[in-house]
Amino acid sequence: MPTITFVQPTGKSDTVSVEEKTSLMRAAVANGVEGIVGECGGQAMCATCHVYVRPEFEDALPELSEDEDEMLDCTTAERTSQSRLGCQVSVGVHLDAIIVDVPTDQV
């Protein structure tokens, strides 16, 4: 099963194993990873599942849609070139292990 590692601002990390096609948001919410809210249920409507994807995984990520791009402009923690919405990135065949950093704030 693919694995996702969430690294907290404190340096503490959680690695979770999930079914293919699971989004980072769903994985975090279902496993109680701190700092990922996902208030809208994965619709890219609330920007509370913001994560920073480590650069080494960038090539395996799905393209940024216009909606996601616009929502990322409004995250609570600062947007960087590594910013994505966790609900729009799923693990699977092309991405069987990923490491992301969790921002300090979501709301």
Binding site: R26, V29, A30, N31, G32, G38, C40, G41, G42, Q43
Partner: peptide
């Protein structure tokens, strides 16, 4: 669980995802 996906992703032809909990049991 979260209700918003029930009338959206949940009904999509591609098959339904599992219910999305508001918080995990451990919470």
């Amino acid at each position: 669980y979260q209700r918003p996906p029930l009338s959206k992703d949940y009904l999509a032809p591609a098959g339904r995802p599992a219910a999305l909990p508001l918080r995990p049991a451990t919470f």
